[in-house]
Simulated scan of single mutants.
Amino acid sequence: MNSRTEVDLQIDPTGALLVKWTGSANDRRPAAILNPVFEELLGSGRYLRFDFSELEHISSSTMVLVLRFFKQLKALGVGFELRYDESAAWQRMTFAPATALAAAPQVSLAA
């Protein structure tokens, strides 16, 4: 299992910023790693699409940061959606509640 979180930023064909998470998000100090990424995302001025479907694991401390960021996006009126693998029980239990914060309906993947 990959012990590091990889967050890849790409512009998708619609002009939105795709934020693709892979690996295992279990860093000991997730704020040190994620806060600069979150600042970059806020500064992009683009609609955001978060894709967690290839993430192997996310720690509770990392998920708290992600949820706070989603709440911040919502408060600022920044549009975003998220994708996860609904066939993976842990992803469904982790990310399904977060879809209520997203501006667009959640897009989930079947295996």
Rank of each mutant, 00 (worst) to 15 (best):
F50C: 04
M1F: 08
G15C: 12
A31R: 11
A25M: 08
L76C: 04
F52G: 01
G43P: 05
Q72S: 12
T5M: 08
G43S: 10
R29I: 06
I33K: 10
L41C: 06
N2P: 12
F70D: 07
S59N: 06
V66W: 03
A88T: 07
L34A: 03
F52I: 01
P105D: 15
F69A: 01
L41R: 02
F50I: 04
I58F: 06
A104H: 14
L101T: 12
T22Y: 05
A31I: 05
A110E: 13
Q106N: 07
V7P: 00
D8C: 05
A100T: 14
L82P: 03
G23I: 02
D8K: 13
W21H: 14
P13A: 15
M63P: 00
E39A: 14
A111Q: 10
D51W: 01
I11R: 12
A100V: 14
S24D: 08
L73Y: 09
L55W: 07
L55D: 05
A104P: 00
H57A: 11
Q91V: 07
S87R: 06
F52T: 01
N26H: 02
L109Y: 14
M1K: 07
K71E: 15
A100M: 12
Q91S: 07
N2I: 00
Q72P: 02
L65W: 06
E40H: 09
T5F: 02
V64W: 07
R83I: 13
R28P: 00
G45R: 08
A89R: 09
D12E: 15
V7A: 06
F80V: 05
L41P: 04
S60F: 09
P36W: 07
T99E: 13
A25H: 04
M93R: 14
F69W: 04
T99M: 08
R68K: 14
K71D: 13
A96N: 09
L55Y: 05
I11N: 10
E54N: 13
N35K: 09
A75Q: 15
F80Y: 11
D51H: 01
S60M: 11
D27A: 13
L34P: 02
L9M: 07
A111C: 07
A32H: 01
V107H: 11
D12A: 10
T99W: 11
Y84K: 03
